[in-house]
Design a protein around this nucleic acid. Structure first.
Length: 233
DNA sequence: GCGACAG
DNA sequence: ATCTTGTCGC
């Protein structure tokens, strides 16, 4: 669990579109992962992987694993805590040979919107060698970005009509996008590139999977993960 | 030193 | 992350 390991893994990071759909086959199976914790013993967790049909948003696959997590939560190092659990679930699908193996994965956590440009979505993407998209429900204050700054941007004249705004840090880098996914909430979600997907494609995929504020793959993983813990404890 | 700090 | 049901409103 170190910044040096993140820097090392980051060398393999790809931040543009790198996949076979749209040219060959189409994007059909999209995965979502999440982890929920036991209220009493927060070291006991349930890792969840769901796969949805991109067209219908039906859940076509779900799997759970109960684990004990020793790695503590430290902001900026979420990948070390969660990625191993998700890798375990992906491996159970025989590393790609399962008919519902996801072509793309959405992660509860950021991609390059991160202090060192390597959030948990990048982390999992590189280790699983899968296209990933990071979804943050709260802004990780990075590179000068703050909630008030984001609010300013969203309320600015030129952005009132746009369905998303680019998050540009003090460095001038585009770190992600804030989007108001459902027409009721003014609280945005924060989308950032994980691995092998461009920001434009990430925003597009997120938009198409949003029935509510949180995109369905993440939302379903979250709901079912909680449900699993409730039934098995 | 002080405040901020994804899940 | 988690503690938490009903309830106000479109």
């Amino acid at each position: 669990m170190s910044a040096r390991v993140q820097d090392e893994l980051k060398k393999k990071l790809i931040t543009e579109d790198d996949y076979t759909w749209k040219t060959g086959e189409s994007l059909k199976y999209i995965g979502g992962v999440d982890i929920s914790f036991l209220k009493d013993d927060s070291s006991v967790a349930c890792g969840t992987l769901v796969v949805l049909d991109f067209e219908t948003l039906d859940v076509v696959y779900e799997d759970f694993v109960l684990v004990e997590i020793e790695v503590p939560y430290v902001a900026g190092f979420l990948g070390f805590r969660e990625a191993p659990v998700f890798l375990q679930l992906l491996e159970k699908m025989q590393n790609g040979s399962h008919p519902f193996y996801p072509q793309l994965l959405m992660i509860d956590g950021n991609g390059i919107l991160h202090p060192r440009g390597f959030g948990s979505a990048c982390h999992l993407g590189v280790l699983a060698n899968l296209p990933t998209i990071g979804i943050g429900k709260n802004l990780h204050h990075v590179d000068g970005l703050t909630n008030s700054r984001v609010r300013e941007l969203m309320e600015a004249e030129e952005n009132l009509n746009s369905d998303f705004i680019s998050l540009i840090g003090d460095s001038g880098n585009i770190l992600g996008a804030a989007i108001n996914s459902s027409r009721g909430s003014f609280k945005p979600i924060f989308v950032s590139v994980g691995h092998r997907v461009s920001l434009a494609s990430a925003v597009e995929v997120v938009r198409r999977t949003c029935k509510y504020r949180v995109p369905e793959p993440i939302r379903q993983a979250d709901i079912r993960s909680r449900d699993y813990l409730r039934k098995h404890h």
